[in-house]
Nucleic acid binder design. Structure first.
Lengths: 198, 198
DNA sequence: TCGTATTGACACACTGATGTCTTAAATTGA
DNA sequence: TCAATTTAAGACATCAGTGTGTCAATACGA
């Protein structure tokens, strides 16, 4: 074998595996019915190689879901949502989500994820699951009187996904510069579309 | 023949055709990869009957798209977006969209529609195309100082779709009562998620 | 450099969806 | 009721995607 005894990380296998996962997320995000041949081509590997890493389509999808959840969770963790004023934490959260837009777009297209991602996923280490920390942030914001207390935490969370998704879509369609998305998303998410005094 | 000379409207053929279109929109909205057999079953007709009305899958999809656009446009037309204060017109628009949620959800899942629906579709009668009238409303709202003038018309329109979509999704998942969606959507769309003085 | 693991291209069988056709039964309007 | 049309069900061929396997060529680590 190339790699010593390791299963996950480095070495050829790890790198190829990650390339396939990233390509799959990117391709499937734009067309969830994409062929395994399409994914293999996007990853720059042969279809038989893809099959060697992931026995069947379902196994690949599962791996991409898991991987995406991990990547997103890490990104959200780094936003340190528990620290500082809720409004600022929320802005960091938006930035974190925009950083992993590809994975987000993929998860968005997966039917079961909307359930899985809203509920708390088991965190092996001490850190809380990312979705739970988002919910915590929203609750905290409501308690401190910064976020609308008349609507549910779940609603706010879903609207956040939706507005971020819209922003990513606009960028991909070339209707908005990449560097302007964060400001627009945050502005709309916080204020809505009604004119406010500056 | 059953029907006299008519092509579209009433008679057995028209009724069967509409049943198939409605069933297709509903089924495809939830799973765009649904089988023609699934659609036929949902419509309560045999698969061969479906094939008699729509030669192949593509033709069916096209018909559903066109039909959905028509239904939605009618609903939006009835909202009379040109009349009254922009904010109130916008609330009527949200109500109109929620009325045709099934068709909206279907169109949402179709890759090319996002382009087709944002641009003006040709209106054979004197009335403006529905999307264009929405854009007009937004522009009017911005001009009158009611809507945020710092963001583009396109952005506001897309955020509107997104928030409405989120609302419909919540209802379908049973997370929100059907009669409460309109108020929540409007509230969030107008004010965002930040607390405002009542 | 050398031995070994890994790769990509190819061939093959299998499955499910699709589109076409036929036929007997059912529905329709008169 | 009756004749005409429409229907559902099934048989059938086709096709694309999938999963499996083989084999020579390649890339890697020691």
């Amino acid at each position: 074998m190339y790699t010593s005894g390791m299963e996950n990380e480095s070495g050829v296998r790890g790198r190829t595996r990650r390339a396939i996962l990233a390509a799959a997320a990117s391709v499937l995000a734009r067309d969830r019915a994409a062929t395994l041949a399409d994914i293999a081509e996007a990853a720059g590997v042969g279809r038989s190689t893809l099959h060697r890493y992931f026995a069947d389509r379902e196994e690949l999808i599962n791996a991409v879901v898991e991987d995406s959840l991990t990547v997103i969770s890490q990104s959200i963790d780094e936003a340190a949502l528990g620290q500082g004023p809720p409004l600022e934490a929320m802005r960091r959260l938006v930035a974190a989500m925009l950083d992993v837009a590809d994975r987000l777009m993929f998860l968005w297209g997966d039917p079961r994820v909307l359930d899985a991602f809203d509920k708390s996923s088991p965190a092996e280490d001490g850190s809380e699951a990312a979705p739970q920390s988002v919910a915590d942030l929203i609750e905290r914001g409501q308690a401190e009187g910064v976020f609308d207390p008349e609507v549910s935490v779940d609603w706010i969370q879903n609207v956040l996904w939706a507005v971020v998704y819209t922003g990513v879509e606009q960028v991909e369609k070339g209707l908005m510069p990449r560097h302007g998305v964060h400001a627009t998303v945050v502005r709309t998410f916080e204020n809505g579309i009604r004119r406010h005094a500056s």
